[in-house]
Structures are given as structure tokens and as C-alpha cells.
């Protein structure tokens, strides 16, 4: 079953929306006429097969790509009308597989998150310090504040990067594959942090590789294929055997997690 993704109540409460969005790389269309709205204060996961355009969508939402057609509205305003620092105070982005210079500590990394709030006239302030402390606490990194990033576990390092985005104090947070290259335990650390952020009133949009984690940790799912949205809605409503087959070309048995009510994929096998 596929639920219409442009249901009016959702778009009314959405801080971030795209209308008829088209992005091309050279002559190859990556996103073709996408309409999408992300629900406020919820976690949205964008899923789909490799090359479906999900990372490109995230880049376009952060204004790293200029769309050939269509528009993106942040709090009802076209993102092209935002100044560079103004946008960075409204929307934070954590790109995929980021690296920091050797020796940089968690606290030093998180301080970078205050840059959109600073200028020639407004240098580092006590408020910035308090925000950095709060971000360290939110990511549960107080004890590791002065440890260099390369001396941390993968999960701690990724939490430090997310804490930098938290320190930007934006209502919207975009994460591109925040758990790639993390093992199960470290991935869960990151997902639980993301849940906490949404609970405190942040709109989180993340691109995820793994449909199972997306069902477990997202309130809202956007399924993409070939640059189009195939389905959007709460995981328990839109995930079906047909959708899984359409996205990944695999058959599976769907069961419901009795603890969380989220759909679980079992017995996944190649479709015949």
C-alpha cells in the first residue's frame, strides 16, 4: 500500500519542503520533479537503493547543489533567499564520512559549530561556551572533551560531529549516512542521540542505507527510487513486501516488532 506523500496536514507543519525539485549531474537527471515535505520535530529517514538520489536530495536541501528546476522552502522561505550564515543558523548539515585534522579535540571540533553565530563584531562569547558545554552534554562526551578525535571510537567520533551540528542551534538537522562504517553498538549510540534530539524539538532528516534501522528509529520514512519518491509516511504504514521488492529487488517476510511496533524484515532473499 502506498500513501500519498503530499497530504495537506503534513506540509502545513513542515519546516522543510521541496517542490518539483530537479537536479542533474551533467546530462543525467538525478532528481526528477520531486515533491516532498519533512514533518516538524520528527526523525525522517530517506531510504532507497544505491544511486537513487538520496544523498543528492540531502545536498540540495543544504544548498550544496543548485537545482535546475523547482524550489526548496525552509520555514516557508525559498532557501536561495537566505544568506550563507543565515542558512547555517537555520539548518545544519553533517556530510558523509567527514575527517578532521589530526590532533583536533572534541571540544575544539564542537566550537566550530558556533561559527555561524560569530562575526568580526561578535567574537567568542560566554554564551558560545555554554552552548558548546550543552552540546558536549547532549552527546554524552563531557569526559572526552579534550581527547583528540582520532583517539576515540567510531561512535564517539560520530557523536562529536553531531554535537558540532547541535552547537549550531538550528531547528533542522541533516545527516548523510551517519552510521556508515560503525558497528552495531556504535550505530545504536548514534541513533539514540538522534532520537533524543527529535524529542527536544529538532527536525532531523537522515539518509540511511539500512531499511531495518530506518523502520526502527524513524517516525517518517521517505522511500526513493530513480530520483523519485516511491512512498512516504510512517514506517508501519508504508513498508510492505511490495515496497521492499520495488526498492531493492528482494523478497522478504514482514513481521512486527512486538516491543516497538516497527516493521521487521525477515528471511530476506533475492526475488525470483
Amino acid at each position: 500500500m502506498t500513501v500519498p506523500f503530499d497530504a495537506p496536514p503534513l506540509s502545513l507543519t513542515s519546516p522543510l519542503q521541496a517542490e518539483k525539485l530537479c537536479v542533474t549531474y551533467g546530462r543525467r537527471p538525478v532528481l526528477s520533479g520531486l515533491d516532498i515535505a519533512f514533518p516538524r520535530d520528527q526523525v525522517t529517514a530517506i531510504v532507497g537503493p544505491n544511486g537513487c538520489g538520496k544523498s543528492t536530495l540531502l545536498s540540495a536541501l543544504a544548498r550544496l547543489h543548485t537545482p535546475q528546476a523547482g524550489r526548496i522552502a525552509l520555514e516557508g522561505r525559498d532557501i536561495r533567499s537566505y544568506g550563507a550564515r543565515e542558512l547555517a543558523r537555520a539548518l545544519a548539515l553533517l556530510p558523509q564520512s567527514v575527517t578532521a585534522p589530526e590532533g583536533l579535540t572534541a571540544a575544539e571540533l564542537i566550537r566550530f559549530g558556533r561559527q555561524p553565530h560569530q562575526s568580526w563584531l561578535r567574537q567568542w562569547s560566554a554564551e558560545d561556551g555554554a552552548v558548546v558545554d550543552a552540546a558536549l552534554a547532549a552527546a554524552d562526551l563531557q569526559a572526552l572533551a579534550h581527547r583528540p578525535l582520532e583517539a576515540m571510537s567510531g561512535g564517539q567520533r560520530q557523536r562529536a560531529w553531531i554535537a558540532m551540528a547541535i552547537a549550531q542551534q538550528t531547528p533542522v538537522l541533516l545527516l548523510d549516512e551517519p552510521t556508515t562504517a560503525l558497528d552495531l553498538g556504535h550505530a545504536i549510540e548514534v541513533f539514540e542521540l538522534v532520537r533524543d534530539l527529535a524529542a527536544e524539538g529538532k527536525t532531523v532528516v537522515m539518509v540511511l542505507h539500512d531499511l531495518g534501522n530506518a523502520c526502527r528509529y524513524a517516525d517518517h520514512l521517505v522511500a526513493m527510487r530513480d530520483g523519485c519518491v516511491v512512498a512516504a509516511g510512517p514506517p508501519s504504514e508504508i513498508v510492505s513486501r511490495e515496497l521492499v521488492r520495488e526498492l531493492y529487488g528482494v523478497d522478504c517476510t514482514l513481521v512486527t516488532d512486538t516491543d516497538t511496533g516497527a516493521p521487521l524484515l525477515a528471511n530476506v532473499r533475492r526475488a525470483r
Binding site: 543544504a62 544548498r63 550563507a84 547555517a88 561559527q115
Partner: peptide, 8 residues
């Protein structure tokens, strides 16, 4: 990309 995301 991180620098762009920080408004630079």
C-alpha cells in the same frame, strides 16, 4: 561541505 554548512 562542512565549511559550507557552517555558512562559509
Amino acid at each position: 561541505h562542512v565549511a559550507s554548512g557552517l555558512g562559509h
